[in-house]
Amino acid sequence: MKQVIHLTVNGDSHELYLDTRRTLLDVLRNELGLMGTHRSCDAGDCGACTVLLNDLPVTSCLVLAVACDGAQVLTVEGLRCGDGLHPVQQALVETGGIQCGFCTPGMVMSAVALLGEKRRPSEAEIRAALAGNLCRCTGYGKIIQAVQRAAGEAT
C-alpha cells in the first residue's frame, strides 16, 4: 500500500508517495539521498540513525515514514551554522571524538537534542543522553568532552 505524505527535512519540504512499510531512515537515505544518517542495527539498539523529529531525538530506523506526515525532520546535513560547523561538530573534530565516524552523525544529533533541552548539562546527564548511541572506536571519553566543550561555547 502506498500513501502520500508531506515532510520537511532540513527546511526543505517534500511531497512523497511512499510504501507504508518504509521507515524514516529508508526515506532519508534512499528517497532523499541524505547519506549522513547511518544504518547499523536497524533495530533501535545503536543510535547511528538518530535524527530530530519535531525537535526530539528518534532512531529513524524505528519510525514509519507515513507516521511523520507533516513533521519537521532535522538530520546531520541540516546542522550547518553559517558557513561553519555546528558547535557540537566543531568540538568533536577538535577533541578527537571521531575515529571511524560511523556513529558520529547519530552522536551529534543526540548531543544537539540534549543541548537544545539543557544548556549546561552535567557529565552524568551527557552520559545518559548518549547512552543510546554506541561507539566502537573511541571509548566515549573524547565525545563526552566534546559535548561539554560545545555546551561551554553555547552559553
Binding site: 547519506m35 544518517t37 546535513e77 560547523l85 568533536l92 573534530v93 571521531i98 565516524g101
Partner: peptide, 13 residues
C-alpha cells in the same frame, strides 16, 4: 585533529 573529521562530523564521508 584528524584530517577526515570534518567530513565525518557533517555526515559527508
Amino acid at each position: 585533529p584528524k584530517l577526515d573529521a570534518p567530513l565525518k562530523a557533517t555526515g559527508s564521508a
